[in-house]
């Protein structure tokens, strides 16, 4: 599928905002996979879950995580596909002993 992009360097002509907004956009699409993002801001502290990103592939997800969660200087930032996690406990999970 062709994804047009017009990026001529015009500065004097007014931008056609309507056209830009309705044009098919490029970059990552919303069909991507979910990734969980973890980080630690100190080597001695445990990893914390800080959010999720959605991306078409792992490379895009890494970059999204880096640019979206840049509010602190992390010593470590990790991502993992959401569907790679296994349930240990969750509400209505049958056969699990000790659920609160």
């Amino acid at each position: 599928m062709r994804r047009p992009m017009a990026t001529e360097f015009r500065s004097n002509k007014p931008k056609k905002i309507d056209k830009i907004m309705t044009e098919k956009k490029t970059g990552s699409t919303s069909k991507g996979e979910n990734y969980e993002v973890f980080a630690r801001d100190n080597p001695e502290r445990p990893l914390q879950h800080i959010g999720t990103v959605q991306a078409e592939n792992k490379e895009l997800a890494i970059a999204h995580a880096r640019f979206v969660y840049s509010e602190r200087i992390w010593v470590e930032l990790l991502i993992a596909p959401t569907n790679s996690f296994s349930n240990c406990m969750k509400p209505q999970l049958q056969g699990v002993v000790g659920m609160a």
Partner: peptide
């Protein structure tokens, strides 16, 4: 400036953030 020009090509908030960040 190339990156600044294509920020509007983003489709999601992380896309916009990433292009703006670059």
């Amino acid at each position: 400036h190339w990156y600044a020009k294509i920020i509007l090509n983003g489709r999601t908030v992380p896309d916009f953030s990433s292009m703006a960040g670059m």
